[in-house]
Design a binder for these strands. Structure first.
Lengths: 116, 116
DNA sequence: CGTATAGTTAGCTGTATGGCTAAGCATGAG
DNA sequence: CTCATGCTTAGCCATACAGCTAACTATACG
């Protein structure tokens, strides 16, 4: 029940594995049972289940059991924190670029004063 | 010289550590020597150096030694693959939403036909 | 009921990760 | 030259990770 709060470390770690990204890509097209997710990976079921657990702990997917089949669904909002972090990084970087512009401007002004 | 090709796994892994994200955030504001990056972390230098190595292998930063000081710089373009991946994910998801819309429409039409 | 199907759990293995200390090397200041 | 500074290398340790097999549970189906 506990809706894991978005933890960037968990999310990034979950995304750092090709197998998990593959699964996510598959799930982005619609829900799927565990076996279907396992098939293209060539991995054994227990391994796949652990990958799914990582994705679920990161809040990227949600799973529910219906009969003997566990169906997995992607949670698209879970990627929002990543986008937010990216935007923030970019923002800081742009500010830095602005500062650099200012710095260049200052240099030019000084040079203009030094050498009128 | 070898410009590491952007490997999502390496990048995501590099970003999955809070310490490394902290360093990146600091570097986003401008270049810094190793010791300055180490200070706020409370970690020992060798540890910090390994974090830097991870960031550098992921292509997120570049370092160069000037005298006895190694200066670290962020490489903002390195985050582009992440943004691209995010966009792609979102795109697939939106297509899926569209399909879902279609599905609902189909349902409604069928229902309309079943129960005129 | 009996059996095939779909997960699940337990537990093993080798490698990677993140932290440390200790000792080494190179450079700038005096 | 000498020494402090700033990084570097080597190597140790504990934990986490990704993979596996083997054995178990639980639900459908005939």
């Amino acid at each position: 029940m506990a809706k894991h709060e978005p933890d960037l470390s968990l999310i990034f770690h979950a995304l750092s594995d090709p197998t998990r990204r593959m699964m996510l890509a598959r799930l982005a097209q619609g829900p799927a049972p565990v076996t279907e997710l396992a098939a293209p990976t060539g991995l054994r079921l227990p391994t796949v289940l652990r990958h799914l657990a990582v994705l679920e702990e990161a809040g990227l997917i949600s799973t529910a059991k219906d009969g003997r089949v566990r169906s997995c669904v992607i949670i698209p909002e879970a990627l929002a924190p990543v986008q937010t972090w990216l935007d923030a990084q970019r923002h800081i970087w742009e500010v830095r670029l602005d500062r650099f512009d200012d710095y260049v401007m200052t240099l030019m002004k000084e040079r203009a004063n030094d050498d009128p």
